[in-house]
């Protein structure tokens, strides 16, 4: 199997104890990996290294050149219309038509010319998703992208992300603290704790995954235990 991401012995510390303590991570093209961890476990730090926003020493750091990030906040430029925001990261003559298509893909055709500050939280995050996908990334990095959304919008976003992943098939690294989000979407789930992976689970369940499916419930319970939460009905 070919690898898209290959990282060996990645270290990162900010003066104190190591935030990332010799991480190994490989990802195949098109693989959907979820990264779970408590606050301060180092998951956002790892994502920032992968995004190129932070540098850290590693024995090996192989990354695809085409990467996109969606952050917890949409981070749209408020002075550019939605379509200009989406077209910003594309250096091609047909950037605008690509952006129009990307916005149609996330169901925002009616908001193309809107100002970002007039968007709802879900719309803004869908625009951010369009801005990331229009660059046709080989690796899509999602940093708790749905954490600030209300529960219903979040469930809808899960479906949207899954659909877009099926269509464009980038490798995805989803950083989250929502266990169900990880189980519903990912091929593989990694649990990070104190800068090390303490658990790896493959999820071989067909989509769409149901929460009342005993197999997903079992995985959810197992993950929650790893995160230090004892489920009520384990």
């Amino acid at each position: 199997m070919s690898t898209l991401v290959d990282i060996r012995k990645l270290h990162r510390s900010f003066g104190g104890p190591a935030v990332l303590d010799g991480i190994d991570l490989t990802m195949a093209p098109g693989e959907f990996v979820a990264l779970l961890g408590r606050s301060g476990s180092g998951k956002s730090t790892l994502l920032r290294v992968l995004a190129g926003l932070d540098t850290a020493p590693a024995q090996k750091l192989e990354l695809p050149s085409r990467r996109s990030v969606v952050f917890q906040e949409p981070r749209l430029l408020p002075w550019k219309s939605v379509i200009d925001n989406v077209a910003l990261g594309v250096r091609r003559a047909d950037a605008r038509s690509l952006a129009t298509q990307a916005l149609a893909d996330v169901g925002l055709s009616h908001r193309v010319d809107a100002w970002p500050l007039t968007l709802s939280g879900g719309e803004a995050q869908r625009s951010a998703l369009a801005r990331a996908l229009v660059r046709e990334p080989e690796l899509l990095l999602l940093d708790e992208p749905f954490a600030a959304l209300d529960a219903l919008t979040r469930l809808r976003m899960h479906d949207l992300v899954f659909e877009l992943w099926r269509k464009h098939h980038p490798a995805v690294l989803l950083v989250t603290h929502d266990v169900w989000e990880a189980v519903a979407l990912a091929d593989r789930i990694l649990v990070l704790d104190q800068g090390r992976f303490i658990k790896e689970i493959r999820v071989d369940i067909d989509h769409p995954r149901r929460r009342d499916d005993p197999r997903t419930s079992r995985i959810e319970a197992e993950l929650l235990r790893e995160l230090g939460v004892e489920p009520l009905h384990a």
């Binding site: 995004a51 190129g52 926003l53 996109s68 990030v69 981070r75 430029l77 910003l88 990261g89 801005r131």
Partner: peptide, 20 residues
């Protein structure tokens, strides 16, 4: 955070100055 977003879009220094 907007500057970081610009970095992930590979705008480059001049692009970041101009657009952000």
């Amino acid at each position: 955070k907007l500057i970081e977003a610009g970095q992930t879009l590979e705008l480059g220094t001049f692009g970041i100055i101009r657009h952000i």
